[in-house]
Amino acid sequence: METAITIFLGILSGYFAIGLLFALYVMLIGARKIDPLLADSKKGIRVLLFPGVVATWPFFFAKLFRFRRS
């Protein structure tokens, strides 16, 4: 059980650490590539979106990758 907990918490903290970095990148640099509408929105809105990007970063990562290829 100890090992299972360690693995679970390891994955969880890893997920959120990557999410944090990725969300910072998206909000500071890559916003337009994720959603062109963000370019026309107020900058403050990105603060509101930040936690959600941290939580769901794999979807945005996939989106960014598709954007690069297309």
Binding site: L12, I34, D35, L37, L38, I45, L48, L49, P51, G52, V54, A55, T56, F59, F60, K63
Partner: peptide, 23 residues
């Protein structure tokens, strides 16, 4: 609380638009 965080943080229309309505 983790689940509720994910839901609350993605409740903006931006996420509905970007994650697709299905997801």
């Amino acid at each position: 609380l983790l689940i509720l965080f994910t839901m609350a943080s993605t409740s903006h229309d931006f996420f509905l638009h970007n994650l697709s309505p299905k997801i």
